[in-house]
């Protein structure tokens, strides 16, 4: 038993972190004007494809690197820290769903040549035996060939043109593109329910890992600021009112990170406990992202409320990921109905 990254796993983290520091620094998200500025990360996909990141956890026989959910979760923490466009989630999940039966599609996704958007329900979804109907939000779908739909009990890969009435919408998270669309008895290319294996649990785990990264980055920003900002002749981080807020942020991030690690190992074993641990990780990690995003602004004071620092970006992204596949209320409803894992 060991819940710390191995040397090889740490090398992957360092590689991804180094790549993102060079190619996707947080400063890229500081707008010089307000309004919807869209996804700044589409240009990253081919580079990430070259590094193998988009098919990291896809089995080698499916054209991926054949690593496990542990390595996937570790990279998603880095994606969250850098606020990489959540379109990456479409690519990872889409590649997994396609790899088993549609190798050409999987190859195009992993090569970064076919983008995959995300669909998340706006209300109830009627889904019988792989036929889906309902109203959805599409995220990063404008140039996508495919869409991964995530509901509280299924995950499905569609061609984008299955979705009808696509119309653009604005979002408070101005670094992404949003649409509304509908499915009327839409038939996916591939799908699996929460009861079939770990596809669905993987989606929750990776959302949790991303949220953990958001929580960690919000913490790091707040702590850095609290060390240098002075009031009453002292750094504000010396005051317990601020220090304890930072400590609470650190606790929330640690809780999330530990459970994400634990769940990732459970998933890598294809265990029956995957759903339970992935849901637990999602609940604590999204909670951490939301709380740390909000507390980060407060620690910064007035500047935290401006577009001149990154603090606000974490709050906006935390709200976006909360809603993908069902918000905390939905996830907690699922989790309280799940069988105990002792």
């Amino acid at each position: 038993m060991n819940l710390l990254p191995t040397e090889e796993q740490q090398q992957i983290v360092d590689m991804v972190r180094g790549f993102l520091a060079a190619s996707a620094p947080l400063e890229r998200l500081r707008p010089d004007k307000f309004g919807q500025i869209g996804n700044p990360d589409a240009a990253l996909w081919p580079k990430m494809a070259e590094l193998g990141i988009l098919g990291l956890g896809v089995p080698e026989e499916g054209g991926g690197l054949g690593l496990s959910a542990v390595e996937e979760a570790l990279t998603y923490i880095e994606f969250g820290r850098a606020l990489v466009s959540v379109g990456v989630l479409g690519a990872t999940l889409g590649a997994h769903l396609a790899a088993r039966t549609m190798p050409d599609i999987a190859a195009a996704i992993m090569a970064g040549t076919s983008a995959v958007g995300l669909a998340t329900p706006r209300g109830t979804v009627a889904g019988d035996d792989g036929i889906f109907s309902g109203e959805f939000h599409l995220i990063e779908a404008n140039e996508a060939d495919f869409i991964v739909l995530l509901t509280s009990d299924a995950i499905a890969l569609f061609r984008r043109d299955e979705f009808m009435g696509q119309s653009e919408r604005l979002s408070m998270d101005s670094h992404m593109r949003l649409m509304r669309a509908a499915l009327e008895s839409g038939k996916p290319l591939s799908w699996s329910s929460v009861k079939d294996g770990i596809d669905h649990a993987r989606a929750n785990l990776l959302i949790a890992a991303y949220a953990t990264g958001v929580a960690e980055a919000a913490l790091a920003g707040a702590v850095d600021y609290a060390k240098v900002r002075e009031q009453f002749g002292k750094p504000i981080g010396s005051f317990q009112a601020i220090k304890h807020k930072c400590a609470d942020m650190a606790i929330a991030a640690e809780v999330a990170s530990c459970q994400v690690s634990f769940a990732s190992v459970i998933l890598s074993k294809n265990s029956d406990e995957s759903r339970f641990h992935a849901l637990a990780s999602r609940i604590v990690a999204v909670d951490a992202a939301l709380k740390n995003g909000a507390t980060g602004i407060q620690v910064h004071g007035a500047i935290g409320f401006t577009a001149e620092v990154e603090a606000h970006l974490f709050v906006k992204r935390a709200h976006l990921i909360d809603f993908i596949g069902g918000d905390q209320r939905v996830q907690k409803g699922q989790f309280i109905g799940a069988d105990a894992v002792i």
């Binding site: 459970q259 996830q331 989790f335």
Partner: peptide, 12 residues
């Protein structure tokens, strides 16, 4: 559900 998730995380 929140408590169940948190106590699960404590084990981790």
């Amino acid at each position: 559900a929140q408590l169940r998730a948190e106590v699960t995380a404590v084990r981790a």
